[in-house]
Structures are given as C-alpha cells and as structure tokens.
Write a protein that binds this DNA or RNA. Sequence first.
DNA 1: ATTGCAATATAGATGACCGATATATGTCTT
DNA 2: AAGACATATATCGGTCATCTATATTGCAAT
Lengths: 114, 114
Amino acid sequence: MKIDKSLTTGSTTMLILRLLKSKDMYGYQMIDELEKRSENIFTLKAGTLYPLLHTLESRGMIESYDAKIDSVRPRKYYRITQNGKKLLKEKQAEWTAYTSAVNQVLGGMDYAIV
Amino acid sequence: MKIDKSLTTGSTTMLILRLLKSKDMYGYQMIDELEKRSENIFTLKAGTLYPLLHTLESRGMIESYDAKIDSVRPRKYYRITQNGKKLLKEKQAEWTAYTSAVNQVLGGMDYAIV
DNA sequence: ATTGCAATATAGATGACCGATATATGTCTT
DNA sequence: AAGACATATATCGGTCATCTATATTGCAAT
C-alpha cells in the first residue's frame, strides 16, 4: 500500500532517533533499515535524511564519526546522545497521545456519546 | 500535552470526513466536536478548516446546504457523499498501515530481529 | 579506464497547516 | 439602545517538513 506522504510528516525524526538507539548507523543504512522494518511503508529519501541528520547533529541530539576500520567506502556513522534519548522519549509520548486521539475520533463516535 | 503540529499533518481530511459520516455538521461545530472528542489534542483552526471544506466540496466528497429552519445564525451544513465515504475508507486503511509501521519500528527492534 | 553503484550533499518546488485579518450577525450587559 | 463579545464564514501570506532533481566522490567490476 502506498501511504500519502503527508501522513508521515513529523514522525521521521522520531524514527531516526529510534534506529540510533538500537545501534550506531550511517545514513544509507538507516534508509534500508527503515524500509525493511516498516515493510516498505517508509521509503525515506536521501534528500530528506541528510539535512535532517545535520540538523539533529547541530542540535546535539546525535554525533557523527568516520568509520575507518574495515569499511569498504567512506562512511559517516551516527550515535545518539543523552539529549537525543530525551528527545526520543518526548516524541514517543507525543506519538502515543496523538494516535490515541485520532483513534478515539475514528472509533468511538456513533454510539453512546456522552 | 501539546502535540507538535507537524505530526498531525495529513490526518485532518480523514477526521473531518469521519465526523460527517456520523451526522451533518457546520464548520464551527466540527472544530468544537474535534476538540471535545480528542480531549483537546486537536485544536483545528478556522483558517485550516474552511479552505479544506471548500476543496472537499469541489472534489465532490462533501455537499453543503444552508440551514434556514430554527437556526440562530446563518450556517452552512455539510453532508458526506458516496465518494466521500469511499475516500474515508481509503484514508482509514492508510492510517492503519502507517501507524502499525511506526509502532513496528518503535517497538520491535532490540530483540529477535529476523 | 569506464561504467555503475554506494554514500553523502544541497537547492528548489510542493503542499498542509497556521496566524492574522476581515466581515456579518446574534447575544449579553448595563 | 449601545457597546462589547461570541458565533460563523472566509481569504491571504507565511512557515515548515518533505520530495525531486541534481551533483560529487570513492570503490568495484568488467
């Protein structure tokens, strides 16, 4: 199924942080991982990801380092910071509140409205 | 809790259609209803709603009629059409797919990755 | 060496939503 | 009955996240 891209607005940052919470990754890898784990729902574009990574880094949410050992190609790995973990928690709380609000509107309206 | 507005992008149309599936409503009423049913998560602005209603009407998803009987103030009621109901179904399917994809990324990543 | 993919990068366009503002009408207060 | 206030609809300019398109570099395979 193709998802209207406007639906996904705003959740990208959260998903990136969540990926990095599991392990350090480089940009291209995040795109692949997201696509795999979401079963092709999220097809994040490079043009979206890299500016986002730079913004997150400048805000101190993630840090980057170059991978020299055993790397095939020059890669820039990213690691989540303490602030990043804090931000992730906030975003997840927002996400939960938001989805349950939507589901409440979608679901509970035809009967027994108080 | 205050929700980052960018998170809500794209779901507004779906929620409006869902409201109208329950009963005919006028603009201002939708704002109130949404706010009530979502427990203040959705505070839809008039500047957002009215252009959206006009777009939906021009696309044949909803129809409007003026309320003359027993109305206190001039009101424009909206009614969902067959096409609108079809669109709502599609949007809801998208919503379900999207949220489960996000939850999958959020939840199932640290253990037992297949 | 040259084609091709991996990987990073940036600029311009798009589209949804908000803030500000406008206007008209009905209600409440004094 | 006058003024303040809430209801109700409407439009415009701006913001922000994301996409499209494009560019560049390094390594691999032929």
